[in-house]
Write a protein that binds this DNA or RNA. Structure first.
Lengths: 143, 143
DNA sequence: ATTGAAATTGATAAATCGTCTCAAGAAGAT
DNA sequence: ATCTTCTTGAGACGATTTATCAATTTCAAT
């Protein structure tokens, strides 16, 4: 029994719905991905080089983008690179981002989420995910 | 009397402090920038091509980055591009995005902003901008 | 199990975005 | 006006991500 049966089922459902196939590479990348809070394609490429030296970087990009479409991941562009966040990792978390040093603090706030729901309802929307990023200076960089 | 005397003074102060010069290009780019809520270098390049066909893209990047250092702008990575936000522009708006039809609804919510401030303060951050996007289905696409 | 249509992969080429380089030109203090 | 320093424009460059395409794999139907 795999550790992440729920996410694997979600992926398989997405694949079936779109006539895509369940491949060895996708399973490999999913396993690695679900153990991370967030990761870049390049990082995953190096991690998986041990398990499968022939796994291509393009496949990793394609697969991480697939995870985004399947709702398992979310892409976040920071600096010159793209971070792929693992949505299932902890419930949902938002980010405080220091524009000077790049420091990232994660947080959760139920009240904000509640207000988001209200806004959505008022506009006839049904929310499935959201993204909230606060940009500014961290304590250290303000000086 | 220019419309944005305050911002122009702030820029001149920054230039003087760092032994930089006030050039025709910087003035041109500042004027264009202050009329926007946010803009990419590429967009500005096309806008300003009419006024100065020889203005280089590199100069626009350099100047927008200068504005960031001077505290007039803030860079935000959005999709594959960098958005330069006009800090002096008040009306910040957030987005409701339909994942099916792509419809975008803008909204503002003071309560959410207040809670964001609280979270930031609690973590020692000073916020200058933020980004909030709610993803889901709009009323029409839910059926 | 075999077949065959359709999707996927790996390798690399290509595109994209932003920064760097450098000679020529402009700003501003004297 | 002169001289030093900074800035500019043009294109080269580097980093990251996507597109291309022949070979391979998946999977549903035999």
């Amino acid at each position: 029994m795999p550790k992440h049966a729920k996410e694997m089922d979600a992926l398989k459902a997405h694949l079936a719905k779109h006539q895509l196939k369940y491949t060895r590479q996708r399973e490999l990348i999913l396993d690695a991905f679900l153990q991370q809070e967030h990761i870049t394609a390049e990082e995953m490429y190096h991690q998986l080089a041990k398990k499968d030296p022939h796994l291509g970087l393009a496949t990793i990009y394609r697969t991480l983008n697939l995870f985004c479409e399947a709702g398992l991941a979310q892409a976040r562009h920071f600096g010159t690179q793209t971070q792929y966040d693992n949505i299932s990792h902890k419930g949902h978390h938002d980010h405080l981002i220091c524009t000077d040093c790049g420091k990232i603090v994660e947080f959760e706030n139920c009240e904000i989420e509640k207000l988001q729901q209200e806004v959505a309802t008022r506009n006839g929307f049904t929310i499935s995910t959201h993204r909230l990023e606060l940009y500014g200076l961290c304590g250290r960089c303000r000086h």
